[in-house]
Design a protein around this nucleic acid. Sequence first.
DNA 1: GGGTAATCGAGACGGTACGTCGTGTCTTTCC
DNA 2: GGAAAGACACGACGTACCGTCTCGATTACCC
Lengths: 198, 198, 198, 198
Amino acid sequence: MDHKSIAPEKRASIGARRNPATEEAILEAAEALLRESGLAGFSIEAVARRARAGKPTIYRWWPNKTKLLLDVYQRLKLKMEAVDTGAIEEDCVQFLLGLFAYWSAGPGQVFRSIFAEAQSDEASAAALRDYAANRRQHSAKMFERAIARGELRADSSPVIAAEVIAAFAWSRLLTGRLDADEADLRAVVRQMVGGMRA
Amino acid sequence: MDHKSIAPEKRASIGARRNPATEEAILEAAEALLRESGLAGFSIEAVARRARAGKPTIYRWWPNKTKLLLDVYQRLKLKMEAVDTGAIEEDCVQFLLGLFAYWSAGPGQVFRSIFAEAQSDEASAAALRDYAANRRQHSAKMFERAIARGELRADSSPVIAAEVIAAFAWSRLLTGRLDADEADLRAVVRQMVGGMRA
Amino acid sequence: MDHKSIAPEKRASIGARRNPATEEAILEAAEALLRESGLAGFSIEAVARRARAGKPTIYRWWPNKTKLLLDVYQRLKLKMEAVDTGAIEEDCVQFLLGLFAYWSAGPGQVFRSIFAEAQSDEASAAALRDYAANRRQHSAKMFERAIARGELRADSSPVIAAEVIAAFAWSRLLTGRLDADEADLRAVVRQMVGGMRA
Amino acid sequence: MDHKSIAPEKRASIGARRNPATEEAILEAAEALLRESGLAGFSIEAVARRARAGKPTIYRWWPNKTKLLLDVYQRLKLKMEAVDTGAIEEDCVQFLLGLFAYWSAGPGQVFRSIFAEAQSDEASAAALRDYAANRRQHSAKMFERAIARGELRADSSPVIAAEVIAAFAWSRLLTGRLDADEADLRAVVRQMVGGMRA
DNA sequence: GGGTAATCGAGACGGTACGTCGTGTCTTTCC
DNA sequence: GGAAAGACACGACGTACCGTCTCGATTACCC
């Protein structure tokens, strides 16, 4: 099962410093396991086996499973770009479509695992909170632009809007309902941003 | 609600049928463990120990951890009633305040655990989906009443509104941010329902 | 696996007294299980299943597993007949060949189980000792006849000879080496009885 | 022989190789349990508890209960030396006397357990067969020496003689009759080796 | 001939042990 | 001093039996 794509080459020490190839192999293996079997298949033993690494090597650099999970996610999360179509409703729909497509391709499983972990591990929860706040700031820009061009009311809150749209996306991810078509999303978005219109 | 830490009395078989006292003791123990230490402390062994039950007795009635989890939650959720203040915004705010208070009192930890479990177990995910759809139908009624009395536009969707407000509540629960004050919630609600106003 | 030959008919109570059909079915099932899978497959649960009996019914009549084992053995052990060819060596060879064939057909497994049980249960050990002494007296007759006809020395001991030949047979049974051919046995017998010759 | 009831000190790993202290503690605990309560009290769980070892540690080195049992016995039997009095009959008597005394001191209980185990577990049976064959080769030397010095006939078989004498000893052990006096044993031996005399 | 009493199958119960898996720590050997 | 290797104590997993229990039903016996 997990012998599908084991790192073939064996990496020895490269002296008294961290071997980047090892770090890379470990993160790669961890991500692959998460994508393939989710949090259930994600164990330090399995990662070590697949990355041809020793368990202590993993524990040297990541104090526990959760930290490794978070690092896997860090590597992943810098891809999504905000769109700017000039119309806020269209921006939101494209944002959701892009996000759902991105998640469906694999990273969604990793993100789900972070959520799962965060429910019992406070460090993960804090990391997730930080990340979410950060993303909120980022996608709030979409609404700020719409306010600036007079499409949305000046007294509406970009941050609240960003939170609500993120919450909606998460709820779909976490309940395994990423297969929404554009029309559905458009209906949701229209209702969500309707109250902000100038 | 009196938390005797370990079930003291010993329960024998009451014949060739399920012993309700045993079922009760197991659910009680499971709930207590979840409230106290979350999903991490929730193991079949621990439940058995605390309920003074044999492991096989648990496995006889609950095929896996998740089913037990769901049963614990089912047993819990008989409280929440929809409010009807006559103003949709007020309804939503009271709904969220009530929900957050309810979750904060303990059940939130159980619900979080179900979400965590659902991220790697498809059966749990399906159960969670069913439950969520059910709740959605239920809280959609709040918006239907507002449409009926002409407060909200006739072409707005109660189900979408219910999903969005639930998604928001979940996102706060799952990221450990249930400590919102009324003003914050009111701002969020105003923006969420603004687009539905007649 | 064990549904091979379950007692088909269901036996109800026949009033306030022991049902002989039940006792018979239980002993039958126990023996069959022992023959098929040895002591490992011999569990009260399995016996009850196979005999279509309730566990308490078994425990009512046999205080524990060992007693049931002994009863199974009691039913079995009255079959072997001594041969008399007129030549002691031939008698012994035929005795061993017959015994090995008899054991190989099934009863050997039951006997082995008694030996196993006797190593940790003193009651079984005592029963086994009694039985062995009895058998010794019985097969000593073979040597007495040989002494009587002058084939063996008058000062040789039939009981010792019986013990030695039984010990040899047991050692083969208990180490699973019943597949000896006649020539091998003859060599052993010749050496065993050689010292007794007139 | 000082029986500290539970190994007090905790043993960690000593690197990627077997820890002899752990092995020792496990064998020690296993032996103690066998001596105290026989096969009935001998469970992997109990051994692990007493030796302060993890169950997986035991299973890592001993694939099953039986192998552990055999190793306990191996560790025990470093005493018995073949005697060489120059007379085969005396050799045999001393051999049996020594063996019975040795067994009576404790190891007999262990060996009985091995026999019990071998009656339902084929792996144990095979191990026991191997061990027995080995011992047979070893004690056959006693007879080879006697043949060499012309005391026994050249065409007699040392291996058969070794098997027969071992079988006799086993039968006494397994039926709990180790309390034979020298005269009895001498009578048995005389009859057993009589047929081999030159 | 109706009540009582012991029997029967059935199967749930609290336990103990099984053998496997994963966690996070530890140490040695090689580079 | 980093890295692979893998042993270690621990504890949860899900399963099998143990011996005890309580039921509801089925008779025979006694009054």
